[in-house]
């Protein structure tokens, strides 16, 4: 029967794509910049950009991020240089820059009343 063929086909395709799609999507994804524990920016790592925030100059370039300049005393964040995973944290300015792997699922995208 064609019905069963369709069923098997759909199960295989969707089942396989659950595993394969996240695997083939570009990794790294998003940069989150938090100030005082508040999420201020959520940017794709793929777009080159420079942001001034709370005394810090944050640069995103070629899938990497760094703090180019800071007005804090230690400048540990600047010394850390370019990163493509993990986090840069500037305590004096209370700025946290993290690179998240998986994007958050769209909230309310598909919900109970559809």
């Amino acid at each position: 029967m064609f019905d069963r063929m369709l069923l098997v086909l759909l199960l295989i395709i969707t089942g396989a794509s659950i595993v394969l799609v996240p695997f083939y999507l570009p990794r790294g994804g998003q940069i989150r910049i938090e100030v005082n524990n508040k999420l201020l920016y959520k940017l794709p790592l793929s777009d080159d950009k420079t942001i001034e925030i709370n005394g810090l100059t944050v640069e995103i370039q070629a899938g990497k991020v760094r703090v180019a300049d800071s007005d804090c005393p230690g400048k540990l964040c600047v010394k850390q240089g370019w990163i493509d995973s993990g986090a840069i944290i500037c305590l004096p300015n209370r700025v946290v820059i993290t690179i998240g792997g998986t994007p958050t699922a769209p909230k309310g995208g598909v919900d109970a009343t559809t």
Partner: peptide, 10 residues
């Protein structure tokens, strides 16, 4: 997000 969600939904 949609590409990640789609296979599960389907």
């Amino acid at each position: 997000s949609i590409l990640i969600l789609a296979p599960v939904i389907l």
